[in-house]
Amino acid sequence: VSRVLRPGGRFLSITFAQPHFRAPHYAQEAFGWSLRHAACGDAFHYFVYIMCKGQPLAPSDLALGRQLGRPPPAPPPPITMAEDEDEDFLRAIEL
């Protein structure tokens, strides 16, 4: 869409995808557009995303888009027990 959209053109996306899922994908500097979104609906919310070609991304959206390509944070180290703390739970409950 970004490749064929004229400068000043707008791309509207209407979806049930919430901004924390969808906005990082739309907030890519390479697309060359600004990003706005709004929630609509009463019982079920749907979201309208508006991208305007040729306008810059807001700094917060730019940072959001840059997070998309980063690897996820490393998981915390596993919790280990000292040998004297090891318990045999099946024997303790006498099955």
Rank of each mutant, 00 (worst) to 15 (best):
H37K: 03
A43W: 05
F21N: 10
F11M: 11
A43Y: 12
Y49D: 00
V4Y: 09
I79M: 09
H37Y: 12
L64M: 14
R70G: 13
R10D: 01
D86T: 12
A30I: 11
S60L: 10
L62F: 05
G9N: 04
R91H: 04
V48W: 00
L90R: 14
Y49G: 01
F31Q: 06
I93Y: 14
F11Y: 15
F16S: 05
D42P: 03
R70A: 12
R66C: 08
S34E: 03
P76T: 05
S13G: 15
F11H: 10
Q28Y: 04
P71V: 11
P71W: 08
R6K: 14
P78C: 10
Q55V: 00
M51S: 14
A63K: 14
A63C: 09
V1M: 13
F11G: 07
D88R: 02
E87K: 12
A63S: 15
G9A: 14
A17W: 07
Q55F: 02
A38R: 15
Y49A: 02
G9I: 03
R22H: 13
L5A: 06
D61E: 15
F31A: 08
P77F: 09
T80P: 01
P76C: 07
S34P: 00
P19I: 02
A43C: 02
H25T: 09
I93D: 00
R91G: 04
V4P: 01
D86G: 04
D61G: 00
F47H: 13
L68R: 11
S13H: 09
L12V: 10
L64Q: 06
K53W: 01
R10L: 00
D42N: 15
T80G: 09
R6T: 11
A39P: 02
Q55M: 01
G65R: 06
P56I: 05
P78E: 09
P75E: 07
P77S: 13
P76G: 12
F21T: 13
T15P: 07
I14H: 06
D88T: 02
R66L: 10
E87H: 06
L64E: 07
L12Y: 15
P77H: 08
G32N: 06
D84K: 11
L95C: 12
